[in-house]
Amino acid sequence: MYHEITLTINGEGYTLAVQSHHTLLKVLREQLGITSPKMGCGNGECGACTILMNGLAVNSCQVLAPEADGATIETVEGLSKDGKLHPLQQAFIDHNAVQCGFCTPGMLMSARALLDRTPHPTEDEIRYALVGNLCRCTGYTRIVEAIQDVAGQSDS
C-alpha cells in the first residue's frame, strides 16, 4: 500500500509516494539517494541511521515512512552550508575522530542534537548522549574530544 507524504529534507520540500511498511531509512537511501544514514542493524540498536526529525535525533530505521509526513528531516548531507563544513564536521576531521566512517554520519547527527539542546555539555553528558551510537573503530576518545572542542568554541 502506498501513502503520499510531504516532508522537508535538508531544507527542500518533497512530496513522495511511499510504501506503508518501508522505513524512513529505506526511503531516504533507496528512493532519494540520501545515503549518509547507514543501515547497521535495522533494529534501533546501533545508531548508524541517526537523523534529525523535527530537531530530535532518531533512528530512521525505526520510523515508518508514513510517520514522517509533515516532518522536518536533517541528515549529514545538509550539515555544511555554502560549501563550508559545520563546526562538528571540521572538528571530527581535526581530531581524527573518523576511522572507517560508517558510524560518523549518525555520530554527527547525535552530536548536533546534543549541542542544540545542551550547548556546553559535560564529558558524561556527551558520552551518554552517544550511548545509542556504536563505534567499533575509534574507542570514542576522539569523538568526545571533537564535540568538546565545538562546545568550547561556542563559549567565546
Binding site: T35, V76, L85, Q89, D94, V98, G101, T104
Partner: peptide, 14 residues
C-alpha cells in the same frame, strides 16, 4: 590530516 576524512564527514564516502 587523513585523506579520507572529508568524504566521510560529509556523507559522500560510498
Amino acid at each position: 590530516p587523513r585523506v579520507d576524512a572529508f568524504e566521510k564527514v560529509t556523507g559522500a564516502a560510498k
